[in-house]
Amino acid sequence: MKTKFLIIILLMLNIKLSANENIGIDTKIFKNLRCLVCQGQTIAESNSDFAQTIKIVVRDKISRGSNEKEIYEFLSEKYGEWIVYKPKFNYINSFLWISPYIVLILGGYLIFKYFRKRRQ
């Protein structure tokens, strides 16, 4: 009974673990790149000359078999990490990625503390 129920739920969720299929890998990369000569636009959104050129280069790299990470590395080397919108997880950026969760855990703990007091 229970397993049946679980299967039904999983079916209804229609789980698809793969990434979004609607957009190709190139668009995904463009959305994660900053158009350096624009004001806060991504390469995907921008019509600028710079963006057009980067699009050509990225598509060219994809067709030559580079993966996402290699493309980010290539561009970071030329233009700095600034060009990538999603900062990679490294020593410098660790606090950026961790601190929201510190707040989450701390907040949960503080609320929980008031429950415990009551039981005593």
């Binding site: 710079f50 050129t53 561009l75």
Partner: peptide
């Protein structure tokens, strides 16, 4: 012609 080679020199414009 298409500007792609210049990217490897880190060209903005």
């Amino acid at each position: 012609t298409d500007g792609s080679s210049s990217i490897s020199f880190g060209v903005f414009g």
